[in-house]
Design a binder for these strands. Sequence first.
RNA 1: GGCGCCGUAGCCAAGUGGUAAGGCAGAGGUCUGCAAAACCUCUAUUCGUCGGUUCGAUUCCGACCGGCGCCUCCA
Length: 473
Amino acid sequence: MTLSLYNTLTRRIEPFEPLAPPRVTLYTCGPTVWNFAHIGNFRTFLFEDLLRRYLEYSGYDVYHIMNLTDVDDRTIKAAAAAGKRLGEHTAPFVQAFFEDRDYLRIKPAHAYPRATESVPAMIRLVEQLLDRGVAYKGEDGSIYFAIAKFPTYGRLSRLDTRELKIGARVTSDEYAKDDPRDFALWKKVDGVDEQVGAAWEAPFGRGRPGWHLECSAMSLEQIGRCCHAETLDIHAGGVDLIFPHHEDEIAQSEAATGRPFARFWLHGEFLNVRGTKMSKRFGNFLTARDLREQGVDAAAVRLLFWQTHYRKALDFTDEALAAAGAGVKRLGEFQERLRGAGGAGRGVGELAKLATKFETDFRAALDDDLNAPRACGALFEFVHEANGALDRKAGGAAAVRAALDGAMGVLDILPTAKAADPALERWIAERIAARDKARKSKDFKEADWVRAELRAKGVEIEDTPGGTKWRLV
RNA sequence: GGCGCCGUAGCCAAGUGGUAAGGCAGAGGUCUGCAAAACCUCUAUUCGUCGGUUCGAUUCCGACCGGCGCCUCCA
């Protein structure tokens, strides 16, 4: 069994094989740092994290590139509204993005090219396209891509170019283009651009890059640098990027290099709120920092997302998040139990057998187009069966620990350890000792009162044969 | 109008042409002073509706109903 992935290009699940194994080049469209990213954005980044981690689990050597869009219409508009220079406005949001990424346990990409630092590559790309005659300067001084010169335009999105609804996007610059459907590669500078410092000199005129151009230039520059390649193994993003963003990236890149831009196109579905996509525009969004401030364990967010396939819309509700939190807690207790299970136990067979079965199921599920819901099903089934075996004093806990570790390397959904400060820890120990004393003298009323006292401070206790254990909740 | 997706128990959600994983919640039991955790048992004769194909469909086809997305530099 090998990994198969749904390729938007073919609308089929296809066996995945990189161009130059074991290297896999992965490019994922990153955030536009005009504001905080919301958890809908992060659903996509989390899906990409799953992809990245599972590729690595499968033995591939992944080179992951995620760009930061720090110059585009929205960043410029936001900077102007704040009365700041572009970089001054975006810097804190870049910082916030990295913090949120870490909070959500998303593995850092190997490279985070920024649009503002990749302008020379963009200019080169535009020059190449001009040389090849697929780009032209419009009457407004901006440079446009001529989709009529790129016959396969529309292949990814399956939008027949003749069907493109053109009436709705008539703005002033439409009159500058040869064809209303052509898109801007390089926008001629305007007053606001200059005001915020979003303008660069180029042989074809002072201006700034178009959004689609940024991704093409940055991805080609990065894979050229790291892997001497012109074709990405995988390019991923949210479904809303299929058109026009990714369609345009393909057109620009392939027109310039003459080679396929990306072999696999993967797209993650939206995170919804009451059936409608989460969006800044609708105001129905929640940021990662909102969750963090609410004390939500990132593991719960991850499990919640893993429990719905990445190509299916997921409705975000507090109930679903709480349910995932309960699942995470169960995993944490299982891990805790394994830690105490040591190497002892009767025989080595039963648990080891369960571990092997789990690993097989886990892999089969994720091999099937990253079916994380099924992988989670296998995980919980494994936890259940292993708990039963542990109750029967079966041996082989080491194999279970190893299997769990392996799976967590991909899913990473064990509860975040909460550390107690020394003073609190001393107090807890003292209270538990007091309770034990009360229990020994059968003063259960007192014992229960102490338990409630601990619970009020967020300390949960559990009486076991080896003594009373506690944890912070 | 064009392209496309979804509708499975109280909630969330996998899934297969042969009779429904898993999580949460709930009920009963074992264990426990009581809890907690864990375990055992139970909880959809049924997969939006109506037709069709088939020995057999939740799974394939069609229609319809309901919800949603893209076609606007939105993850």
